[in-house]
Design a protein around this nucleic acid. Structure first.
Lengths: 147, 147
DNA sequence: CCTGTCGTAACGATTATGGTTACGACGGCC
DNA sequence: GGCCGTCGTAACCATAATCGTTACGACAGG
């Protein structure tokens, strides 16, 4: 499917910022998040920008600038993040219109549209069950490095 | 997500072949299916080849060659087709290893892996609920062209 | 005014998809 | 045995998305 890591990186960023704020800090910088995710600050700023448009985070400019959560981790779900950073549908229709003179060509798109809608609805429901609070909890539950 | 149409075209091909066989024909050619789906015969052959590897269809070569179902439409589910034509996972991890010295960087991948596994399991369950028999039924139920 | 960070444009590398052409392999049929 | 239609598959290209990177203006606090 040529999956992408946008949802993963966005969740990583939110978890990082949430934990950082619980440690008493006001804002986190894209550079800090990028260092943790081992990627480029611009990639982080782009994704956080989409999360800001969705009302999940806020940004401050100027000196001492950075990012902060606009909502509690417990009130943000993976569905919120998914909708913020993943534009299109899960499955695509034909790139060109099927032969409308053929019975199958005529009926296939309405049929698949209905089926895909049900499936995506279920996916959204599953994503909505996972809060970023749970993500951070799972992150912190990972076994420590053995020495 | 840059969704693709592989599942859609594969389902289209199976429905077309199934209906064609119910009309008394032995085999269907990639050219016929491609005409209905309004794409190139090679694209159809490539997808049908993957379905053949999964044991869903059979192909005959030589004169009077073509494709036929290896199973009844009622015993093929969208999950079978999905697994045959969609290689990767739905969501990807980071392209590079996150900073293992950071608590979040260290725990994020195990955490997301578990969450993604649950979600994909639900998706597979939903796909398994839809048989190609139902797809064809929905296709034939599409409203006829009004004149 | 200086400095650190955001915001965003621009570009390139990489990858997946899908369309196309080409051609050998195969197997019924005359 | 040769012909012909179809599969099987390689090769190539166009397109698009993602991700990394560089660059630079905008902004605000000290």
């Amino acid at each position: 499917m040529s999956a992408n890591s946008r949802l993963t990186i966005a969740a990583h960023a939110l978890a990082w910022i949430g934990l950082y704020q619980r440690q008493g800090h006001e804002v986190a910088t894209s550079e800090q998040v990028a260092a943790s995710a081992n990627t480029n600050p611009v990639v982080v700023r782009r994704l956080l920008g989409e999360l800001r448009r969705a009302g999940l985070v806020e940004s401050r400019r100027g000196a001492g600038a950075g990012w902060s959560l606009a909502r509690e981790l417990g009130s943000i779900t993976l569905l919120d993040v998914y909708e913020a950073v993943e534009p299109g549908p899960l499955f695509a229709m034909h790139r060109t219109t099927p032969d409308q003179g053929c019975v199958v060509g005529h009926g296939i798109q309405p049929a698949m549209r209905g089926i895909y809608q049900d499936i995506e609805e279920t996916l959204r429901h599953e994503l909505a069950r996972v809060t970023l609070e749970k993500v951070l909890r799972d992150v912190l539950a990972a076994p420590r490095q053995p020495l």
